[in-house]
Design a protein around this nucleic acid. Sequence first.
DNA 1: TGATAAAAAGCACGGTCGTGCTATTTTGTT
DNA 2: AACAAAATAGCACGACCGTGCTTTTTATCA
Lengths: 195, 195
Amino acid sequence: MNKAKKTRKQILEVALQMATATSLNDLTIGSLAVATDMSKSGLFSHFKSKENLQLAVLDHAYDLFRQIVTIPVYEIESPLERLNTLCDNWLDWYELQAKTCIFISASVEFDDQPGVVHDKIAQDLAKWLSFLISTVQAAIDEKEFIANADAEQFVYELYSLYLGSQSMIWVGLEDANHNRFKLALESLISRYRRI
Amino acid sequence: MNKAKKTRKQILEVALQMATATSLNDLTIGSLAVATDMSKSGLFSHFKSKENLQLAVLDHAYDLFRQIVTIPVYEIESPLERLNTLCDNWLDWYELQAKTCIFISASVEFDDQPGVVHDKIAQDLAKWLSFLISTVQAAIDEKEFIANADAEQFVYELYSLYLGSQSMIWVGLEDANHNRFKLALESLISRYRRI
DNA sequence: TGATAAAAAGCACGGTCGTGCTATTTTGTT
DNA sequence: AACAAAATAGCACGACCGTGCTTTTTATCA
């Protein structure tokens, strides 16, 4: 691997940490340079613009997300079991990222800020949601879920519960083990399950 | 009313609009001065610090929120009907604020940024959630909901669905009329309802 | 190993930020 | 109408932002 690629990767690891801890906009080139022990201009030349840096951070995050959440379930045959493991991994992802999710904060941050970053976030979110939808649809097709189930409605509710779990931890309505999420997920699945 | 109080109120109305459209941190004293046709220092002297401005904006928002969402339901006797109206008003609030909610964006923005603003947001959110919980509890007590219902779990799910509705509009999984939210809410209530 | 290209640093720029200080204008009261 | 007080404006500051330049250091490969 190139020297450039290597340092670029190291930068992105630190950058993802920082952007996760604060936000994509608070990830400043100066502070990132300090954190990586580089000069501002030396770091800057890797990305040519702040926007490119933000895109690179999101790309890096998505790679990591896939590695943790998505890829490990490919071998699982039962769609329902795949869905369950997916949710477990999804919670793991949250824990591994120091109890936040950069995609969620980024999507709130950029929902009123049009541009390529906004578009990439929307695109990544759409990819993840449609992956979930197809998994639910597979469960329907393989008769693990009831035939007249609405896969999109299921995923809307599932993603909502995930969002809510994060939001409500810091007011104490949800606990650190996501028990309300797990309970609601169980209930959600049972309503869709063929008995 | 004082001149000071009057202009302060005018400032806060514009400030809330701007903070809602972007974010509490992007609400800059300079840009707010331009928007209100004042000098930076003239405006600044009303609040003495940016933090105070942010607190004032949140206060103003919460007043408005109560006016639109909470106060109009006080006269409704049936807790369940109160809950339904509350949800309708809650959606109205979202529409009136140009299809965003400052509390949601602010809570994401400040969840990793300790201080008085963070604390106020958490406090406001907690107040709203406990109001919802007490309404659900009233429905249980008056036997509109089943006796062994969990009011907190209900509100966790309700708030999650609201969050999700907003998040998923911009990827097209939810539509502008919040139909997925309404459908899920109906389902949620029916699961708690005494038949 | 030495030539050449790539990576990193140094430095400067215009801009905007929040926030003080002082001067001026406007308000409210006698 | 005169005067004290309050509201607003003018101006300046140090700090940090993103981003261009030029120079120096480091990596790559014949």
